[in-house]
């Protein structure tokens, strides 16, 4: 449509071929030793922790759905739960470099991505940033039970 772009029949009708570049498949080959240059000990461990948090969170939902109970806590959840148990490395890896200004959109199977992205942001933010958001969200309605729960513990 734009007039500034001329469609030249001489060019368009020339014979030739389209060349594709090779598409990389699983080319990553670094060892943990190699990666010690890129990650601190805490960072290595945090990656593990984030995966474990997602796994346990979803194991719990799975138990609730199947057995209506997790570690002795009974609950019946009639609603949906599409779990991503097994996919934790993908979620944590996807979110690792992302901050709050980076947006993720997901699917029906995105509990893991929500947690991975949230954990990544929590790790990057300072206390006052976190407190401001938590206190402000629904005027603190989501935060209050958690704070109380901590005191009760």
């Amino acid at each position: 449509m734009p007039k500034i772009e001329f469609i030249d029949p001489k060019v368009e009708r020339q014979s030739g071929e389209i060349k594709l570049d090779p598409i990389p498949v699983n080319q990553y080959s670094k060892s943990i030793e190699d990666e010690k240059l890129n990650f601190t000990k805490d960072e290595f461990i945090r990656i593990y922790r984030d995966m474990v948090i997602i796994r346990e969170f979803e194991n719990m939902i799975n138990d609730i759905k199947i057995k209506s109970e997790y570690n002795g806590i009974a609950y019946n959840h009639p609603g949906p739960a599409h779990l991503s148990i097994g996919q934790e490395a993908s979620a944590v890896g996807m979110a690792y470099h992302l901050d709050a200004e980076d947006y993720i959109f997901g699917s029906h199977r995105s509990h893991g991505e929500i947690l991975a992205k949230g954990l990544s942001v929590i790790n990057k933010w300072n206390d006052s940033q976190l407190m401001e958001v938590m206190k402000g969200y629904w005027d603190g309605a989501t935060l209050r039970p958690v704070e109380k729960g901590i005191r009760a513990r």
Binding site: L98, D99, A100, E101, D102, Y103, I104, F105, G106, S107, H108, S110, E113, I114, K117, G118, V121, I122, V133, Y137
Partner: peptide, 8 residues
């Protein structure tokens, strides 16, 4: 607030 936009 954490950049987690709607899941679908």
């Amino acid at each position: 607030p954490f950049g987690v936009y709607p899941n679908n």
